[in-house]
Design a protein around this nucleic acid. Sequence first.
DNA 1: ACTGCTAACCTATCAGTGATAGGATGGAGC
DNA 2: GCTCCATCCTATCACTGATAGGTTAGCAGT
Lengths: 227, 227
Amino acid sequence: MSASAKDSANTAEASELDHVVAHRATGIVPRLKSAARREDILNHASRLFLSYGIAGTSTRMIANAVGISQPSLYAHFATKEALTNALSARAFAGLEELIAKIRSADIPAATRLEAMIRGYIGFALDQGTAYRIAFMLEGPMHEDEEFNPDILPGMQAFAGFRDGLALLQREGHLREGSTDHLAQSLWATMHGLCALLLARPDFPWGDVPSMIDFHVEIILAAYQNKP
Amino acid sequence: MSASAKDSANTAEASELDHVVAHRATGIVPRLKSAARREDILNHASRLFLSYGIAGTSTRMIANAVGISQPSLYAHFATKEALTNALSARAFAGLEELIAKIRSADIPAATRLEAMIRGYIGFALDQGTAYRIAFMLEGPMHEDEEFNPDILPGMQAFAGFRDGLALLQREGHLREGSTDHLAQSLWATMHGLCALLLARPDFPWGDVPSMIDFHVEIILAAYQNKP
DNA sequence: ACTGCTAACCTATCAGTGATAGGATGGAGC
DNA sequence: GCTCCATCCTATCACTGATAGGTTAGCAGT
């Protein structure tokens, strides 16, 4: 984070801190049940991440925004990484729902692929922070731990996506070939555009919606089975 | 970074530190000309980033590995971010060369596209750290600064790539349509696979080389002009 | 209404981080 | 041999994520 942005962030949050501390002294910030406080924290963290980035948002800034002390965060999340993962997982639950809905939707099978692709891209750009956490952050180097899709946010959504593709393939609306290869390749193709748009928003993309349309058409032409 | 990994990193570097400090006391680590020291720093940083990640490598670890004090780094790089950008730029110079070579290579124009694609993917996976720095890291939020391709590592390489595509298109070996859209879409498609392979190396990809082959074939079918 | 227990919350503090200020020094050129 | 300045150092800063251990609000049971 640039020094100026960080300073302004701290200044902004410091004044919020003063405000909240005053409230604390008068007992206006109420004690909350654990679950409610947890949601509270995630909401404030989500807002701060948008303004200052994930690395640029300190646990103190989050705590100050919520109106609790910084160590109190650790009653809800073991680490800052756990907090970000929870935030991402909460958002990805929405994508899982969306994909499941499309999979069983009463729309022509031929258009279900496009709906899933546009749903995925729309989610990624809409929930940029959650998407970054899931697929773009430099992970910690725990080479000891094994790959666990149940913990890593986004992986279950991908599994749903892959299952949707498998169904489409059985119905003859997807290219033939290894379903795993197709799913991974299609995932990569969608991810590439989302990741670059999120990582380089200032790149001279031209008109982004028409760029997305162009990319989606390419994807459909490449992966869809045209009878 | 996980606590265990960080600890081991610090332990490892601490022993290196002791070693180097002893040398310093006896004057064995020589003073170097600025340019040589700069290369020295980049080399050690590159090695450490591979083992501990970028965020997981502290400026002190780098300085200890080189055998100089931590503040001495700032004689060569204004910030840690400047150091990582320099590292990335140095690596991307290699990709620029490669693309330029392919562009003017004496090979059938029809195979130049595949050569560029495979060159790009190979570079990204080979120079993972440099690639992450250029295209995958959460950037600092300097919303004040404008987009500057001369400073951002990787952007000049992309420009060369786009020019190569424009040439191919003029020669009729690339799909018709907006060259910018094509270049950005193709970039995204390549980037997607590289980014996911780098960010999720433990994902059950199956056989990665055959996955790459599959993806490249899809790309060629989608973007190449088949007469 | 009193009591006690526990979840919720706090202050104080830690080691580690990137970065800065200002002083020491060794080797190249006269 | 002397000087000068690039090179390098120690000391220190504010801030970070995280931990230890004490305090208190508010609900359950009497």
